[in-house]
Design a binder for these strands. Sequence first.
DNA 1: TAACATGCTGTGCGGGTTAACAGAATTGGG
DNA 2: CCCAATTCTGTTAACCCGCACAGCATGTTA
Lengths: 359, 359
Amino acid sequence: MWEIHSSDKIRIKDIAERSGVSVGTVDRVLHNRPNVSRKARAKVEDVLKAINYQPNSYASALAYNRTYTFCCLLPSHGCNAYWTEVEKGLKQCLLNRGDFHLSLFAEYYDQFDEASFVSAAESLLACRPDGMVVVPLNFEVTQMLCSRLQESGVPFVFLDSNIPEIAPLSFFGQDSLKSGHFAARIFMMQAGAEARRILLMKLMSKGRVASRQQENREVGFRSYMAARHPDCDIVELPLQIGEEESYDARIGDMLQRFPDIRHCITFSSRAHILGEYFLKKRLDGYHLFGYDMIERNLECLKQGTIDFLIAQHPWKQGYNSIKALFNHIVLRKPVQQYHYMPLELLTIENYMYYVADEK
Amino acid sequence: MWEIHSSDKIRIKDIAERSGVSVGTVDRVLHNRPNVSRKARAKVEDVLKAINYQPNSYASALAYNRTYTFCCLLPSHGCNAYWTEVEKGLKQCLLNRGDFHLSLFAEYYDQFDEASFVSAAESLLACRPDGMVVVPLNFEVTQMLCSRLQESGVPFVFLDSNIPEIAPLSFFGQDSLKSGHFAARIFMMQAGAEARRILLMKLMSKGRVASRQQENREVGFRSYMAARHPDCDIVELPLQIGEEESYDARIGDMLQRFPDIRHCITFSSRAHILGEYFLKKRLDGYHLFGYDMIERNLECLKQGTIDFLIAQHPWKQGYNSIKALFNHIVLRKPVQQYHYMPLELLTIENYMYYVADEK
DNA sequence: TAACATGCTGTGCGGGTTAACAGAATTGGG
DNA sequence: CCCAATTCTGTTAACCCGCACAGCATGTTA
């Protein structure tokens, strides 16, 4: 019925033929070398525009015989499964492009220490990168790094959270506001419109909400609630990172104080703190909504103490960040500016088909 | 903090060095050529196993200088958006591999005419394919084609629906049973446990359910319902393909006959038939659950007459099918046997982040 | 002394890059 | 209008790379 051929690919030789000049002239046009008459340049450019020429990237890389250095600046995370997945994605993308000479350098910063961001950035700049993946901290320090990158013409992409004013080459992450909306829709559908009180667990660090994502999702969530369920009381349960031994008591207190609570939600990736508590205390009848497909959350999902998770596709975020830099810098292909991850809902019925990574 | 290099790649020369033989011997082992002592073969194979050697695919393809022909056998579909997406995925994957010499031939068959399957298969076999993508019809005719492929050692993958007994190289599609489960969970969460009657719209063709997917999803759905909501009455509304002019009357009849129905579901991709009816008649207060992100369903989702869709990722199914054949045949890489698409729930809040395709 | 095993060398695969050079076309000045 | 100087253009060839494969001389074993 139909057929296509990948070798319909256009070579420089074909362009030369179609524009009635020699390969030498085409080459001069492609590389902006001098000694091309206006007439010849126009003819070649016409053909180039008409056929959207994509040079054979392997052959090109082969001939250039150049190495590229990418750097990435991430929050330090220890055993945190989320950032580990991001890292795996970054590395996998690089290794998948093994036919090119690529290097990837990474540095970590402390999310609650601006100075560590600056010094990590400094040591990455010393690598003279051709491109960079940055997980932004606040505007000031991120801006400081990025303006230096822009000065030297080094493209960079933002991962996880965006700062549009700085205008990265590309952004990879989730739309936190919409994510909060979506969570609210599903959460309240389960709770039922008649639910009068719900619990919001917040993961804190040094007195502040532990991540910007958490903050923004909550904003989206609350805007949906204000519009659709204004009478529903949202009880907050803040838990400090580092004070794990106090969690059980604080959760117990809260549930005792508000015995009508049946539905809990968190915008952090640690729904399992509540899930494991329910399991340990053999509490039935609680419903729990959380974020991120990490080991401990998955276990709770299987056990039935977590009902819903929203996946963030950390692996894909990492993979696609490097892919964007590669396409832009090495292949000189155009790159989309915003890449929002899908808002994927995971339950006991469908988690097994959530694909974290493609080989 | 860490660094990796894609050019840590191992070459044949490296293997020769590490196993203490010459490149000639490594070559003989790699290609199962004769004249290699048991001792040398063992040494080389040890190294190969230890480092998981992946030859440079481009260099390899270059040296082979071979062209590969893939064929695909699909149901004919006219303007049907679903299969059009599958086709786009198939083509894109081929074109993305433009540095190799690949051809793709496609033939269509009539889903309700076994003879058309046989004759389409015949004309594809005449192309002497190196690999094939098949959307199975029933066991008999599919088996007939596949046994001939197996005889001549031509690998094939199944797309959309699987026939495990025939043991394809790989399968790409959704787990219909689990999909029905998942749909039931979400659907009944919205309907509420107190719902006593729901409507199930079934798309029919020549007196039979129009697709196997539809059938299997319904099985999954009903098994969940039987277990959790045994008292809920499932009213069926069969609509014949080709009798579109009768739809409105039949829907109207049914809704009048069962005025307590508020929640409707279909396992076909044509939820929009109901959605557009609700819109046209300005009926409010109905809830609708369906499948597939196609134009007309999307419009209903935006208008609010469809609440939920489950996406099937047709583009990815097509893309990954060709990718699997390519990896197996050209790159000689191992291929996973089952590839179930994620069960992704789409709503007005998150549909915009459903990514149909990557460039 | 065969037959087998091994190391070594060389060639081709093929787009893109780059440079060198000869010849053609154009320009500018007398 | 002619003759140089300059600019442009086509041709050619070397090179990038890892892999496939063939040929041959030299070992090694049965």
